[in-house]
Computed example of a mutant assay.
Amino acid sequence: MSLTAADIMEPDVETVTESEEVGDVLTKLARKHYSGFPVVDDETGRLVGIVTRTDLVDIFQPSDRTLWIPIGLPPFLESMEYGFDLSWGGLDAELDLARNAGKPISAVMTEDVVTVREDATLDELLDVLAGDDPDINRVPVVDSGGFVQGLVTRQDVLRALRDERRA
């Protein structure tokens, strides 16, 4: 008997809705110690995206506060660019949080979500979780209507492989 997504998924999945605010989702992540949530449509409950810690950390990146200055004087043929960080450390993070906390999670979520059905084999799960995209650490399991039935993480697949080898 081959294992399927239904056999190894976590069926009790906490989701967030697309209109929930970034600040509220950050609080949920901190309290639950999760690394992300499937995002569902406010009205239908169907999967519309996924939000991870990485998505939320990206809104606090100081790339817009880095000043790049080309430096090069003759006899140099090519100039070099030096980056100067113009951020103010903690104050910038607080300002970013204040500016972004009220935004809907749909503004930062990933919309192109890789999903599987409950009958997906262990090999299909491995193809997704060990594939070319290193950012995929979890895959929502959805039914034909797009409703979340569960969630499979890399850890779940590793445990299943370990248990299968021991059997």
Rank of each mutant, 00 (worst) to 15 (best):
I50V: 15
V51I: 08
V51M: 06
V57R: 10
D58L: 10
I59S: 02
P62D: 10
S63T: 11
D64Y: 12
R65K: 13
L67S: 10
I69M: 14
P70S: 08
P70F: 02
I71Y: 07
P74L: 05
P74Q: 06
F76C: 07
L77M: 05
M80G: 03
E81H: 13
G83I: 05
G83V: 02
F84S: 04
S87H: 01
S87G: 12
W88I: 05
W88K: 14
G89M: 05
G89N: 09
G90D: 15
L91D: 10
E94L: 15
L95G: 05
L95I: 14
D96T: 07
D96R: 13
A98G: 08
A98S: 15
R99L: 13
R99V: 03
N100K: 11
N100T: 09
A101E: 12
K103A: 09
A107N: 11
A107Y: 05
M109R: 06
T110Q: 08
T110H: 05
D112I: 00
D112K: 10
V113G: 06
V114M: 04
V114P: 00
T115P: 01
T115Q: 02
R117C: 01
E118L: 06
E118R: 14
E118D: 09
D119H: 12
L122V: 03
E124I: 00
E124C: 01
D127R: 13
D127P: 00
V128S: 02
L129M: 06
A130V: 14
G131A: 11
G131E: 05
D133K: 10
D133S: 07
D133C: 02
I136N: 10
R138H: 04
V139C: 03
V139P: 00
P140W: 03
V142L: 06
S144R: 12
F147K: 14
F147Q: 10
F147Y: 14
